[in-house]
Design a protein around this nucleic acid. Structure first.
Length: 818
RNA sequence: GCCCAGGUGGCGGAAUUGGUAGACGCGCUGGCUUCAGGUGCCAGUGGGGGCAACCCCGUGGAGGUUCAAGUCCUCUCCUGGGCACCA
């Protein structure tokens, strides 16, 4: 028995020192070698790593080290998503500028990442609050401005009337400001947008080719929400105004019984001028939260505007209402209501006593219930009560009605998207300044390249509430670079999603001060594997895809998409709930690292569940991981104390040696598949544990026995190296190897070792397990069937019943049906 | 409300293509070793029955398809994620 104790702290120190001195993880472009760019979503520097980070970055490190052992040229960088709201809150709380707070957090968290032994190329590190970084974002924005891809229009914000500041949705709690407690108001202010909708079709189409989880692609498709419909114009009675609406169900046009417009719609505003009760209702609507979830769940309310719209086909009039569930920022801010065939319209009509008309009935053979008296019938069907359209099916009715509307100039076919343009203005301090200048009443224009970056002043005091640069003439006062006349800088900053939309590309060329990207991006991009939380499935990933296409159109990258493969990890839970300070169920990774070492933490977090599922934290489980590593250490040390093993000679094997060697190679096969293809690290670890259990039980009785164990131990160290790299670094040299384990190749499967003489077959009678039989490998189905039928227990269950059928699945099972 | 996941022993999870439910680990029980300590080793461990061989039941719930269903279909309940200014 070895008496060398497993001292994780010393082992980890030695390995990390070696990697640093050796420059193991510095990535160098090499056109001769196949590259692998592995990227994890970078962290917001909130102060310390949490378990979600540890999980995310361990997954990325395991894949990176595995791909390196496959011979790939691996790039694994790390940086900081450093702008954002929490820094402003912390600044007010601690009386410290956000920049200082952020950079101190980064220094601490970098130390934590290093302590965990992640193989990052630290030479490429940057933070998004570095002017050298956001400079190029500002530059790209001015290109977009030139191309008309960036534009300004009014948009609604949450306004805190007491603090006189714009609030994030997160800062609105039950409709009130988080600090002031005052009811929040909707306010419209001019803001910057990016025309992501110009790319809607491409963003939708290219999803098909991505190797991403299907649920994420489905969510993005739904988010983009392509629909084919008709834009219809309703005249307003006794007026030269018109009301435009978009519908995907023109087949129900003959069932329209009222129209509904948003509170901010011009028709509603006009009507409110002469109707105080209506005005009160509209004001009430403007106190509603703006989020879609709030819109959809609140009680549906409305008021009649006292005006009528004229049906474009029948000429009949229908009343126009204002409704709290219609949003001005979405579509035309107005909808046609068909209560017979839309559930929300139905409920609204019921509430306010509006007529409900059936114009669709179920198609022949359709079994959906249809009773307009108790609910809307929302399926496609056959038209009824629809004049000349009666009897048509959906598609035919769509075409006929659309054509008729087009013929009279009252409508046109249109493809619509649910996706809206990206609002990138934030009325906050801690973000990248929007590089725009305004002179007098002229249109704003982009800051000239040579004036970039527009640097955010960092030595500020946030005590005054609101963004300090809005009160800082030294920041916003400037001159027109051409005319020299006095001008004003934009004081809004970019949405922080802007920075996270292109950082993956900048890691390729982090030190270039002449250009945003260079030819190195051509080598590394696209990212081969991108790993991060499922909560980013829509927004971040859609914005990054959009940015990539913008950069492609600017000639900066040549691929269509940024992330070839995506792995979305689940959350880390404790007692069934997300870890959070308010619930008091957090587990500090640092304490665990201090107590057990990085390898134990890495092993447990990879073993506890597969990456896509949520992970239930367990302190006892960490103990188990620690125990395994100690056993593993002892087993390898014990083996290494013996003499050099003989060469493997399969002809000399006895049965137990042959069995152990078969297990070694079936394990290599399984672990390679689990890590390389399935990303199920938990089952890979389980398989290696099984192998080690068998090695521990195995009795070495001769030279070939020792040789087989030697191969098993070597392979186990190699296969565990990506997961617990420190202990494997040390054990690899203990085993007498001169090279570093990080420079070794992944073990190969010896196919000849996999062959077995016999196989086990399951025998069922009527689908229930009744016997297990052992047959020689390769015997025919007839023989297997005979042996199965001859089994005593099988005979007992067949009894005197006639055998109706026998199903034989080769190599697996026999099912006897009686 | 809408979109997307998930629900399997006391616990985390496994079962990859419809073919042995519960691998591996934790916990627990019994035993051995030990200067009983967050040590090591051995055996057992889904529920019920049986001395045993074995048998019956069992994957949130209700139906269905199939020789065979954790896996496929329909409905339903519960939990989690997202919903455009948290990141």
């Amino acid at each position: 028995m070895t008496d060398i104790p497993y001292d994780s702290e010393q082992v980890e120190k030695r390995a990390q020192h070696f990697w640093q001195v050796d420059g193991t993880f510095s990535a160098v472009e090499d056109l001769e070698r196949e590259k692998f760019y592995c990227l994890c979503m970078f962290p917001y520097p909130s102060g310390q790593l949490h378990m979600g980070h540890v999980r995310n970055y361990t997954i990325g490190d395991v894949v990176s080290r595995y791909q390196r052992m496959q011979g790939k040229n691996v790039l694994q960088p790390m940086g900081w998503d450093a702008f954002g709201l929490p820094a402003e809150g912390a600044a007010i709380k601690h009386g410290m500028p956000p920049a200082k707070w952020t950079r101190e957090n980064i220094d601490y968290m970098r130390g934590q990442l290093k302590r965990l032994g992640f193989g990052y190329d630290w030479n490429r590190e940057f933070a998004t609050c570095d002017p050298d970084y956001y400079r190029w974002e500002q530059w790209l924005f001015t290109r977009m401005l030139d191309k008309g891809l960036a534009y300004k229009k009014k948009a609604v914000v949450n306004w805190d009337p007491v603090d006189e500041t714009v609030l994030a949705n997160e800062q609105v709690i039950d409709g009130c400001g988080w600090r002031s407690g005052a009811p929040v108001e909707r306010r419209e202010i001019p803001q910057w947008f990016l025309r992501i909708t110009d790319y809607a079709e491409e963003l939708l189409a290219e999803l098909d080719d991505l190797d991403w989880p299907e649920p994420v692609k489905i969510m993005q498709r739904n988010w983009i929400g392509r629909s084919e419909g008709v834009e219809v114009e309703f005249d307003i009675e006794d007026s030269d105004q018109a009301l435009r609406i978009y519908t995907t169900r023109p087949d129900t046009l003959m069932g329209v019984s009222y129209m509904a417009v948003a509170a901010e719609h011009p028709l509603a505003m006009r009507a409110a001028e002469i109707d105080s009760e209506l005005r009160a209702f509209i004001e009430e609507c403007q106190r509603n939260a703006v989020s879609e979830a709030a819109m959809e769940t609140m009680e549906k309310q409305g008021r009649s505007l006292g005006i009528n719209a004229v049906h474009p086909i029948t000429g009949e009039t229908v009343p126009v209402w204002v409704a709290n569930f219609v949003l001005i920022g979405y579509g035309t801010g107005a909808v046609m209501a068909v209560p017979g065939h839309d559930q929300r319209d139905w409920e609204f009509a019921r509430e306010y006593g509006l007529p409900i008309k059936q114009v669709i009935e179920p198609a022949p053979g359709d079994t959906h219930a249809c009773d307009i008296g108790s609910a809307a019938f929302v399926e496609y069907g056959v038209l009824v009560n629809s004049g000349k359209y009666t009897g048509l099916t959906f598609k035919k009715a769509f075409d006929a009605i659309a054509s008729d509307l087009e013929a009279v100039g009252k409508g046109e076919r249109q493809v619509n998207y649910r996706l809206r343009d990206w609002l990138i203005s934030r009325q906050r301090y801690w973000g990248a300044p929007i590089p725009v200048i305004t002179t007098g009443d002229d249109e704003p224009f982009g800051a000239p390249d040579e004036t970039l970056p527009i640097v955010l002043p960092e030595d500020v005091d946030l005590g005054g509430g609101g963004s300090p640069i809005k009160q800082m003439p030294s920041f916003y006062e400037t001159t027109d670079p051409v005319t020299g006349e006095s001008a004003t800088r934009e004081t809004d900053t970019f949405d922080t999603f802007m920075e996270s939309s292109w950082y993956y590309a900048r890691f390729c060329s982090p030190d270039n001060d002449q250009a945003m990207l260079d030819e190195r991006a051509g080598y590394w991009l696209p990212v081969d594997l991108y790993i991060g939380g499922i909560e980013h499935a829509i927004l971040h990933l859609l914005y990054a895809r959009f940015f990539h296409k913008i950069m492609r159109d600017e000639g900066l990258v040549d691929s269509p998409e940024p992330f070839k493969k995506l792995l979305t990890q689940g959350m880390v839970l404790k007692d069934g709930a997300k870890m959070s300070k308010s619930k008091g169920n957090t587990v500090d990774p640092q304490q665990l690292i201090d107590r057990y070492g990085a390898d134990t933490v890495r092993l447990f977090i990879m073993f506890a569940s597969p990456p896509e599922q949520s992970l239930e934290w367990s302190d006892d489980g960490v103990q188990g991981a620690s125990r395994f590593l100690r056993r593993f250490w002892r087993l390898v040390q014990d083996y290494a104390q013996g003499e050099q093993p003989a060469a493997l000679n399969p002809d000399e094997f006895d049965d137990s040696q042959r069995n152990l060697r078969r297990l070694v190679h079936t394990t290599i096969e399984k672990v390679s598949d689990d890590i390389g293809r399935r990303y199920t690290f938990n089952t890979a670890i389980a398989a290696i544990m099984e192998l080690m259990n068998s090695v521990a039980k195995f009795k070495v009785e001769n030279a070939q026995g020792r040789a087989v164990v030697g191969e098993a131990v070597d392979c186990a160290v190699l296969m565990l190296a990506p997961i617990v790299p420190h202990v494997c670094h040390e054990l690899w040299s203990v085993l007498g190897h001169e090279t570093a384990v990080t420079d070794e190749r992944w073990p190969n499967v010896d196919k000849s070792a996999l062959l077995a003489d016999t196989m086990q077959i399951i025998v069922q009678v009527n689908g229930k397990l009744r016997a297990r039989i052992e047959v020689a490998t390769g015997v025919g189905n007839e023989v297997v069937e005979q042996v199965a039928l001859a089994d005593d227990n099988v005979q007992r269950f067949i009894a005197d019943q006639p055998v109706r059928k026998v199903i034989v699945v080769p190599g697996k099972l026999v099912n006897v049906v009686v």
